[in-house]
């Protein structure tokens, strides 16, 4: 049941869906990526027997975020730019409402829209060398895919404003302190760990499970 995409690598293995951003090295989120994510949405939403969905980036990085060189001219000449952006939003936001756990595993860069994508997942795990940031304001933009609210909800308004207005990057340890990621794991084992983590779920993900499962898993690892 594997469909072919140009910008995404998608497969289901042992009842776990693997969605890989597949435009290395930086896995930039292009117009084609958002469009393929929209195509994939129907299929993933229909897979109610899935035990979990794991999102990752091919190669060394999760993703450096939206491709502004492509996106900005597109918005500028597109009369229906707002609905174009709205569809980019819904191409990602539905992940949050899936009935099974959605886990982002993050290696390397996770910037801008890519961090916003990860913030739509229920869990985020990263490697020690991961780098995060919402640099949009430094390009005279704002994080436009729900990132402002979600960052603030996880880390407090003060820190969200500080990182969003300065646009500066932060490392894995800081991300853990901010509550942006749930745990830091060795990067070569990240996906395997995420699979083990996913398998402990009874199948459904309910709001509020996050703390319980993270703390239980972290305890068991000690």
């Amino acid at each position: 049941m594997t469909r072919k995409f140009d910008t995404i690598d998608w497969c289901v293995n042992d009842q776990i869906g693997h969605l890989v951003l597949n435009q290395p090295p930086s896995n930039k989120m292009t117009v084609a990526f958002f469009s393929e994510m929209t195509d994939l949405k129907g299929e993933i939403t229909g897979l109610t027997s899935l035990k979990a969905l794991i999102i990752s980036g091919k190669g060394r990085h999760f993703s450096s975020g939206a491709d502004l060189d492509e996106l900005l001219p597109e918005i500028d000449r597109n009369a229906g730019a707002e609905s174009f952006l709205q569809s980019n939003y819904t191409a990602l936001s539905y992940l949050e409402t899936l009935p099974f756990p959605v886990i982002s595993v993050i290696r390397g860069a996770c910037l801008g829209s890519a961090l916003e994508l990860a913030l739509f997942s229920h869990f985020r795990f990263c490697g020690e060398e991961a780098v995060f940031g919402l640099p949009e304001t430094t390009f005279n933009l704002i994080p436009g895919i729900g990132g402002i609210q979600r960052f603030a909800a996880l880390s407090r308004k003060a820190r969200a404003l500080d990182y969003i207005l300065t646009g500066r990057m932060f490392d894995a340890q800081r991300a853990l302190e901010l509550g942006i990621v749930d745990a830091i794991w060795p990067k070569i084992k990240l996906v395997d760990e995420a699979i083990v983590f996913a398998k402990q779920f009874p199948g459904r993900y309910e709001k509020g499970m996050r703390e319980v499962y993270v703390s239980r898993y972290v305890r068991r690892k000690r």
């Binding site: 900005l72 730019a81 707002e82 952006l85």
Partner: peptide
Amino acid sequence: ENRIFCELAKEEAK
């Protein structure tokens, strides 16, 4: 959020 982003993006593109 969409509308605000769009407005900023158009200005930045120009």
